[in-house]
Amino acid sequence: MVLSLLVQVPAGVWTAAHAPGHGLHWRLALHLALAVAGPLALLAARRLPGPTVALVSAFALVDVLTAPVYGPPYVALAFAIALAVARGAVIWAAVSVATGWATAILVGVAIGRIWHPGLIVAATVGLALSFAVGAFVRTRGARMAQVRADAQRRRRSAEERERVRIARELHDVLGHALSQMNVQASVGLHLFDRDPEQARAALQNVKDTSKLALEEVRGVLGVLRDGEVPLVPQAELAELPRLIAGLTTPGLEIALDDRLQGTAPSRATQFAAYRIVQEALTNAVRHAQAGHVRVVLERRDEPDPVLVVTVTDDGRGFAGADPTVSGRGGVLGMRERAALLGGGVDVGDGPEGGARVVATLPWGRAS
């Protein structure tokens, strides 16, 4: 609007003052009014782009027919066309411009005006460029809106993945801790009168497990606060004996067969393997009704080095049912952990009965 006023008002005054013939005052008043009316009409282009371009086209038509043939261009019309096309009022712009253009040619011929071909070509090119600018702005706006929508979807997807990761960590930590505390509390109650020392040790295990679980939960939730790091180090394979000792009871024997010969895979692989073993043992304690569980750690080098973790028990197994829907929680979590590293988890019935969990994880860079 400001640019149109700065161009059209001085040009309109100059045109009216230098036009041949009489009637300077009415021509000056008319061209000054048209020079102001067109730019002011652009104020409505945001809410009413279609009617605005039609009104500005009418003002431009009157200006063209009353000004000299080689008068200044009506700049407000170019802005009105571009704004209308950019806001989707393409039909309004096309109809208004075509009507004004045809009327200018026909009325001009009727009143004896001679339109130079070069002038017609220049005006047509100018109008076409106005449409092109409007189309470019509209396309760019749509592209930017799509980019923003994609970014928002990616942000929501990242937030969802983070929520799933935190939920998986909390499930593993709390599920194992509560199962372990339930086992040790049951042992303590069972031995409370017969063997007070063993009962006291079981209750001490409950205390230690709850303390460690609280620290791990704080560590998991610490990622929700900017700049906060976990309060405890991530679990490694070296922590498996402590994990197994906390779950071993007089009615459940858990054996660890470590065949790694002192070598260790990458930290990420160790953490995933620890959580998978933790979940498998928790399921064995809660669901399998097993008396013996065996955990085997081994490295295989064909074709690429991998860590193979096998957890078997002599419980009731799955009886051929799908482990993901058979009531044992955490199976999907184990598979997700392995998939994030490019590995996999096979869960099903063992060859000799009971359940078997086999996790294959890439070895990665040794730590």
Rank of each mutant, 00 (worst) to 15 (best):
L5D: 11
V7N: 03
V9C: 03
H18W: 09
G21R: 01
W26M: 11
A29I: 15
H31A: 07
A33I: 10
L34R: 04
A41Q: 05
L43G: 08
P51D: 00
V53N: 01
A54W: 11
L55A: 13
A60L: 06
V64C: 06
V64D: 05
T66S: 13
A80K: 06
V85Y: 11
A86K: 00
V90M: 07
A93E: 12
V95R: 06
W101G: 01
I105P: 13
I111S: 05
W115A: 06
W115K: 02
H116E: 13
I120P: 02
V125L: 15
A128P: 11
A128H: 05
L129W: 14
A132D: 12
A132N: 04
A135C: 01
V137I: 14
G141V: 07
V147H: 05
A149T: 10
Q152D: 12
R154D: 15
S157N: 12
R163W: 07
V164Y: 13
I166S: 00
R168C: 04
E169C: 03
L170V: 07
L174H: 13
V187G: 11
G188P: 13
F192H: 10
V206M: 05
S210N: 00
A213L: 09
V217C: 12
L221M: 08
R225N: 03
E228N: 01
P230A: 00
P233M: 05
E236W: 13
I244M: 04
G246C: 07
G246T: 01
D258C: 04
L260I: 05
Q261G: 01
G262A: 00
G262Q: 01
P265S: 00
S266A: 10
R267L: 15
R275H: 14
A280C: 07
T282H: 06
T282F: 03
N283G: 10
Q289E: 15
G291W: 10
G291E: 11
R294F: 11
E298N: 08
P303S: 10
P303R: 01
D304S: 03
G315N: 04
G320F: 09
D322R: 10
T324M: 15
S326V: 02
G327R: 02
G330T: 12
M334E: 04
M334T: 08
G348A: 00
G350T: 03
G353P: 09
A355W: 03
R356P: 09
V358M: 06
T360C: 08
